[in-house]
């Protein structure tokens, strides 16, 4: 594997620059409570982004994550209300996410329909189906053991930190050292070459979509248990956040290159910008423009370098 990539380095530099400005302008940003809150708010994005990294590494994309996220969140609430114990609720949400991912994966891997088309279709269809069935109603009166997964507000972050470390390490290690992980890179680099080398590319593609769905389901549970009720219109626009984090983190949109560590950096950068601007007293009306500017700069810096000579590929 490569050492740290160029993009990862430029994202790291952007984070460091932002942190320096913050340290000078608004040191309150680094208060323990604030960092803790930011961590909890961005963990769901990170978990979904890890799944998305796998999908993008194979050269595909999944824009249905927001809709899958909403369905899994509502499903986890309904399961908990039906008296299912919390660990099984989490598993159930992952299973539902995985199932929806399998639907995407089957269309992409076995029917060979472009992933952006498939997931565009499922994004719209799943969101409207959820709207139709819930009629916009929230899931309320959740059992007492739902919030904080039955633990307390102070224990839960530790639990989540453990979970995230395990996931991050497992995905990184698996991609680097397992045959299945290498197959993901191989498929993304060149489907034909990978197939000729004996990789079952369709199975790989199918599996990454299932994994992405299951990760999204987990993200939905991790997010939902921070609250005591579940809105049914949650996760709108999540796909853009997640994809932005992955590609800003250096994963090549055409597949074959990228690391979970880069994705982590992407989530950190994007998760920092919004609150950082608030802390620095920037008018909320200009926030979105500045966010867009920072993302563009981060990717453009990586692209502007002397003697560019590469065969361009278009997503």
């Amino acid at each position: 594997m490569r050492s740290i990539g160029r993009r990862e380095a430029s994202v790291l530099a952007a984070i460091a620059a932002l942190a320096l400005v913050l340290a000078a302008a608004a040191p309150g940003f680094f208060a323990r409570d604030n960092l803790g809150d930011l961590f909890l708010a961005n963990v769901p994005v990170l978990i979904a982004a890890l799944g998305m990294t796998l999908v993008i590494l194979t050269g595909h994309i999944d824009i249905s994550v927001g809709s899958v996220f909403a369905i899994c969140a509502v499903a986890s609430g309904l399961l908990a209300k039906a008296g299912v114990p919390m660990p099984l609720v989490a598993l159930g949400a992952c299973a539902i996410g995985g199932l929806l991912g399998a639907l995407n994966g089957a269309f992409v891997a076995y029917l060979r329909i472009p992933s952006i088309v498939v997931t565009l279709a499922t994004m719209v269809a799943l969101r409207d189906a959820l709207r139709w069935t819930t009629g916009g109603a929230w899931v309320q009166e959740l059992p007492a053991g739902f919030q904080w997964l039955g633990t307390t507000q102070s224990v839960y972050p530790v639990l989540v930190a453990g979970l995230v470390i395990i996931l991050q390490v497992a995905v990184s290690w698996g991609l680097r050292n397992l045959a299945a992980g290498r197959a993901v890179y191989a498929t993304g680099s060149s489907v034909d070459a990978a197939r000729l080398a004996g990789v079952r590319t369709s199975l790989v593609t199918f599996s990454v979509f299932v994994a992405a769905g299951a990760f999204t389901g987990l993200a939905a549970v991790v997010n939902s248990v921070r609250f005591s009720q579940i809105p049914s219109n949650t996760g709108i626009g999540l796909e853009l956040n997640v994809i932005a984090a992955v590609v800003v983190g250096g994963t090549l949109i055409t597949g074959g290159r990228g690391t979970p560590a880069g994705t982590l950096l992407g989530v950190v950068l994007l998760g920092m910008i919004g609150p950082a601007l608030t802390f620095m007293g920037v008018s909320p009306y200009w926030e979105r423009a500045i966010q867009g500017g920072i993302i563009l700069t981060a990717v453009a810096v990586d692209a502007v370098r002397p003697h560019v000579m590469r065969v361009r590929s278009y997503a």
Binding site: I61, L240, I243, A244, V247, V248, L252, I253, T254, W286, E287, R288, A289, I290, Q291, G292, G293, I295, L296, V299, A300, A303, V308, R310, R312, S313, Y314, A315
Partner: peptide, 17 residues
């Protein structure tokens, strides 16, 4: 030569912002 998906995702935020 930046992938169009990333570029236009960024300009989407920029223009709307």
């Amino acid at each position: 030569g930046i992938p169009p998906l990333i570029v236009t995702l960024g300009t989407l935020s920029l223009f709307r912002g």
